[in-house]
Design a protein around this nucleic acid. Structure first.
Length: 137
DNA sequence: GCCAACGTTGGC
DNA sequence: GCCAACGTTGGC
C-alpha cells in the first residue's frame, strides 16, 4: 500500500467538486515525473488532496480505484490518468505553513519540490499529517 | 506582482 | 550533447 499527494488548484478542480461527483479522473498531467508516479499507483492506494494557489492546504483523502490508463485528454498513450474516489474530508485541513514547521516533515516532497503535482508520501509522513488533521479513517 | 525552481525548446 | 533563452508553476 502506497501513499500519494495530489495537487489541484481548487478553482479548476476542488475536493468538494470530487465529493459532489462521487468519483473523478485525474488527467491532464503533462510532466514525466508526475506521470511516472501516476503509473506506479495501485488500486486501493490512498492519497492526500492538496489545494495549491488558493488554500495551500491538504483538505481530503482519496482512494485510487483504477490504475493508470491513457489520458483521455490526450491523443496517444504518452500521458496517463487514474481514477479515484473521495474517501474523507479532513476534520482540520493541514496547511503548508504548518507542515513546514514540523521538523519530521521537512523532507516532504511538498516542501522541497513545490512544482511536482503528483508525489509520493511516506507512511510516517502520512500518519503525522493524519494526526495533525484530527481525522480517523 | 514578484521571483525561485524547474522543465522545455532550439541553436550550435 | 551542451547550454542559453524562455515558459510555467506555485509560494510569498
Amino acid at each position: 500500500m502506497n501513499y500519494w499527494l495530489l495537487k489541484s488548484e481548487p478553482f479548476v478542480f476542488s475536493f468538494n467538486q470530487l465529493l459532489q461527483d462521487g468519483s473523478g479522473v485525474w488527467d491532464g498531467v503533462r510532466n514525466y515525473q508526475a506521470r511516472n508516479f501516476l503509473r506506479s499507483m495501485k488500486e486501493g492506494d490512498l492519497g492526500f488532496f492538496y489545494h495549491s494557489n488558493e488554500g495551500l492546504e491538504i483538505v481530503g483523502i482519496v482512494e485510487i480505484t483504477k490504475e493508470a490508463f491513457p489520458d483521455p485528454t490526450f491523443d496517444g498513450d504518452r500521458w496517463s490518468a487514474v481514477e479515484l474516489i473521495p474517501v474523507q474530508k479532513l476534520n482540520n485541513p493541514v496547511k503548508l505553513s504548518d507542515i513546514k514547521q514540523k521538523a519530521e516533515l521537512k523532507d516532504m516532497v511538498l516542501v522541497n519540490n513545490t512544482r511536482l503535482s503528483v508525489q509520493p508520501v511516506t507512511s510516517s509522513e502520512w500518519s503525522i499529517i493524519m494526526q495533525m488533521s484530527g481525522t480517523d479513517i
